[in-house]
Simulated scan of single mutants.
Amino acid sequence: MSFSKSFLVGIGTGLLFGSGVTILCIRLQRVAREMDSLSNAIAELATQMSVLAEHLSTLRGFKQRKKRNEFYSASSGDEDEIFEDANLSFISSDSDISKGSKNRSTEDKILDTHVLFNKVEKLFEGDEKNQEEAFRLLSRSAPQHSADCGFHWRMSKACYLVSKIEKSRDNPAKAKDFLQQSVDHASSSLKLDEKCSSAHRWYAISLGSYGEHLGSQEKIKNGFLIKDHIQRSIDLKPNDPFNHHMMGRWAYSVYMLSWMERKLAATLIAAPPEAKIEDALESFLIADRLRPTIWKENLLYIAKCNIELKRLDEVAKWLEAADAVPVQTKDEEEAQKEIDQLLPKYQTS
């Protein structure tokens, strides 16, 4: 019975039976109120404990986000600005209950955000349908997350993945539009939190990918900007293998520019980007140490750096290691095609 009903019943009983019984009724009423209040407090505590258990379970899922048990891909990653533990306060008085009720909607919103991001991260690791579903989920929740850095870099990633899907479907206009959205969301995430490693990472990725739609001069200028954001991502998250892999890819691409491309770059900008193959190799080796022997694309690029350095025994070793990693993603399919072409040239037996 609620407090208000107990109170009304107590008054009615006193009027009916007179003053002697009224005293007893008042005392019984007081006891009933105290018991009712205790019952409510216990029920509220049980509710809060249930919310806390669910909340901590979700946070644990973020900190131990499901990764591939055996293999790592350049398309996986982040990335993951994991959310800090939130403290839930237990309620022990009527005034606290009132405050708790007001705060609960905020806690539920935080919890919903965690659940959304966790689901989206899992979908990113799936096939094209999963990745498109991740994009739809994020798009539907956009109005509630306009000021959330974590939302925007994830939206940048989703747009990038959908752009790749549209490109594979021979829809270049849609692919370009999604890439532009990827750049815009990454830029928004940086404005919201300049110290977010994943924001810098996805700005570098999206800007680099959009380069195919730009003129030579703008593309070359962006090369410096891309490197700066990769380096910033490394500074913020030095133990993330993907950041070092990205730096290796940047250095390798610059090193592999043809003589003609270098001459053209020099005419467009006074000091075009430069890189040594040794720098690229070092970045790939750091990524391998952080995520050893199980990343097909990274192993392939270590082999390719050794080809440029004429270390043929090393080439065969790294190609064979890359070939042993099962194919699970489209990026790995592309890497495997290149491995299949190179292996016959460099295998020692």
Rank of each mutant, 00 (worst) to 15 (best):
R33F: 15
R33V: 09
R33T: 12
R33Y: 12
E34P: 01
E34D: 11
E34Y: 09
M35F: 08
M35S: 04
M35P: 01
M35E: 04
M35D: 06
M35G: 04
D36F: 07
D36A: 15
D36Y: 05
D36I: 07
D36P: 02
S37Q: 05
S37N: 04
L38H: 05
L38Q: 08
S39Q: 05
S39V: 03
S39I: 01
S39P: 04
N40A: 09
N40W: 02
N40K: 10
A41C: 07
A41L: 11
A41G: 08
I42R: 12
A43I: 08
A43G: 09
A43Y: 03
A43M: 09
E44P: 04
E44H: 13
E44T: 13
L45Y: 10
L45G: 08
L45S: 15
A46R: 10
A46D: 12
T47N: 05
T47C: 06
T47Q: 09
Q48Y: 08
Q48P: 02
Q48A: 12
Q48M: 11
M49I: 08
M49V: 06
S50H: 03
S50W: 04
S50M: 05
S50Y: 04
S50N: 04
V51C: 02
V51L: 12
V51K: 12
V51P: 00
V51M: 01
V51E: 10
L52T: 02
L52R: 01
L52P: 02
A53L: 03
A53T: 01
A53F: 01
E54R: 13
E54Y: 02
H55A: 04
L56F: 09
L56S: 14
L56W: 03
L56T: 13
L56M: 15
L56H: 15
S57I: 00
S57P: 00
T58N: 14
T58L: 12
T58Q: 11
L59P: 04
L59C: 00
R60M: 02
R60S: 14
R60C: 10
G61F: 02
G61E: 04
F62A: 11
F62Q: 14
F62P: 04
K63C: 05
K63L: 06
K63G: 08
Q64C: 01
Q64G: 05
Q64N: 11
R65E: 11
R65L: 14
